[in-house]
Computed example of a mutant assay.
Amino acid sequence: MIKKLVLTGAAGRLGSYLREPLTQMAEELVSTDITDDIGALYEGETYVKADLSDLAAMTEVLQGADMVVHFGAIGDEAPFDDILQSNIIGAYNVWEAAHRNGVRRVVYASSVHAVGMHRIADNIGLDAPHRPDSYYGLSKCFAEDLGRMYWDKRGVESVHMRIFSCAQVVSPRSLSTWLSYDDLIRLVRAAVSAQTVGCSIVYGISNNDRAPVHNLGAGHIGYKPQDNAEQFAEKILAEAAPADPTDLAQMCIGGPFATIDLGESGVAQLTIIDDSKKT
């Protein structure tokens, strides 16, 4: 069992599903975000309000930690200055604070949007070059390269989880891109518990029949997704409009992020049900 684990972005929808499982992997879980309160705490969990853009604050939060699970960031496309502070400077602060405190590993919530302009038909693997579809995706590319540099130069391990559609299945696209909450938990647990990872990238996606990518080369993490969106296919496809092969939002793995203007919300083009786990 890990002595001390830090979770950033604990107030977010995905963070809400990770808090309880992470308390089972550590003697102490320190959850952090910029909100004043995240509700009732689990046994072994404490909460610290801290801003990712404040290096001193992050250095203090990570003091004595063995690992950090970094989910804190703007989770959508936004104006570049906003992305810069939260996602880019925030990522640097986490890695630098990890280095200063001797933290062994950063488990990072990267995103499909780091490679979002690749076509679905290409069935890319983990060796596909960065091809971001937004400032948001660009920030994920930065953090992946940052993690590689901190591993090469300073020995800080990292696992970069390119998370796909971790939400309820409501569209034809999500039949291929779904990451169930249970598989999210399995992925994070694997990334935390793997013996050695160096600097690794893995796609955060369930075992979907229609998956647009393959995870070959990530077996050493030990991630074994068990859920499959095909169970929803009959209902979703019966209600869906006809496919449009000229629409980049349907042809690229980044979905609507492939067609939005830079700085404009991509999440606004999706139907995401806020089913955050309540404490």
Results as ranks from 00 to 15, higher is better:
K278H: 10
E230Y: 11
T259I: 13
S53E: 15
K4C: 09
M1D: 12
S16W: 02
I124S: 06
Q231W: 06
M161G: 00
G125W: 07
K224A: 14
V48Q: 14
Q195R: 15
V61F: 06
D122G: 08
D82M: 12
P225S: 12
I89T: 11
Y223G: 08
V106M: 07
A218G: 15
A218P: 00
Y135D: 01
A10E: 04
T59I: 08
H99C: 12
L29W: 01
P172F: 02
L184H: 02
F164L: 02
V107T: 10
D36F: 04
D247V: 09
D66G: 05
V170C: 01
M58E: 03
A121K: 14
V197S: 11
A10G: 12
P242V: 10
L262C: 09
A258T: 11
G198P: 10
D66I: 07
A109N: 02
G116Q: 01
G263W: 08
L262H: 14
A194K: 08
H130L: 10
G15M: 03
H113S: 12
Y17E: 10
A10R: 01
V112W: 01
G44I: 10
A114M: 05
A249E: 08
A78L: 02
I221G: 09
K277M: 10
Q168G: 13
R173K: 14
K140W: 10
A268P: 00
E157H: 09
D261V: 14
A229S: 14
V48K: 15
R186K: 09
D261S: 15
L184C: 05
D152S: 15
S174Q: 11
T279Y: 01
V197C: 10
A190R: 03
E157W: 08
A243Q: 07
A218C: 11
K4L: 10
G64H: 08
L248N: 14
G39W: 05
A91R: 00
